[in-house]
C-alpha cells in the first residue's frame, strides 16, 4: 500500500516507516517522528519531532478535515475505495441492471453530462421501482434500453464515461 494524499489538487506522499508509539513518517521526502494523542472525539495533540500542536480532525469517507497551525485543511486520501464495493455497476462505466425488469423512465441521453449519484433511469421489477444512479460523474456514451423495454439481470442499461 502506497499512501497518497491530495491537498488542493496537489499530491503528497506519506509513507510510514515505523509504527510504534510514535510513527516514523516520510512526508514528501522529509522524515519525522509523529504521534497523535486523542483528547476528544475530534481533538488531539500532534507531536512532531518533540513539539506539540493542537489538532482538530474529522473524517468523511476518504476526506480528512484537519485544523492545525491556525488553518483548516481538506486532505483526500487516495487509497480508499470507499463506497465502490456496491456490487452493481462498476468502475468500468457500464450501468447494469441489478435485477430483471422494465424501464419506467429514462432521464438521460447519449452525450449528457451527469453528476455522481444523479438519477439515470427508473426501473420496475417485481412491483418495486428502483432508481438507477450514476456511480460517478461522467458523460453518457450509450443508452441500451428504451422506455417500456425489458431487460435481464446484469444487462447493460447504459454506458458512462468517467470525466477526465
Amino acid at each position: 500500500m502506497r499512501p497518497t494524499h491530495r491537498i488542493d489538487g496537489q499530491e503528497h506522499r506519506v509513507t510510514p516507516l515505523r509504527r510504534s508509539a510514535s510513527q516514523l513518517l516520510e512526508v514528501d521526502g522529509t522524515q519525522l517522528e509523529a504521534s497523535l494523542r486523542w483528547t476528544g472525539d475530534h481533538e488531539a495533540v500532534l507531536t512532531v519531532n518533540g513539539s506539540e500542536h493542537q489538532v482538530h480532525a474529522a473524517q468523511d469517507g476518504a476526506t480528512l478535515f484537519v485544523h492545525l497551525d491556525g488553518r483548516s485543511w481538506r486532505i483526500e486520501s487516495l487509497n480508499g475505495f470507499a463506497g465502490r464495493m456496491d456490487g452493481g455497476s462498476g468502475a468500468d462505466g457500464r450501468i447494469r441492471a441489478p435485477m430483471p425488469g422494465v424501464v419506467v423512465e429514462i432521464d438521460v441521453r447519449p452525450g449528457d453530462a451527469v453528476a455522481e449519484n444523479q438519477r439515470l433511469a427508473l426501473i420496475e421489477s417485481m412491483k418495486m421501482q428502483t432508481e438507477i444512479t450514476a456511480p460517478m460523474a461522467g458523460t453518457v456514451t450509450a443508452v441500451h434500453v428504451e422506455r417500456g423495454g425489458s431487460f435481464d439481470r446484469g444487462a447493460a442499461l447504459m454506458e458512462l464515461e468517467r470525466n477526465a
Binding site: F81, R84, G87, G90, G154
Partner: peptide, 27 residues
C-alpha cells in the same frame, strides 16, 4: 471476472483493475 462474480459465484468480488482488487482485498 464478470461471469464468475455474477453468474457462477466462483469468485466473490469483481475488480476493474489490479489496484482495485488489492483495495478490495485489503478491505
Amino acid at each position: 471476472a464478470r461471469m464468475h462474480t455474477s453468474v457462477s459465484g466462483t469468485c466473490d468480488f469483481y475488480a476493474a483493475n489490479e489496484a482495485e482488487a488489492i483495495a478490495i482485498g485489503r478491505e
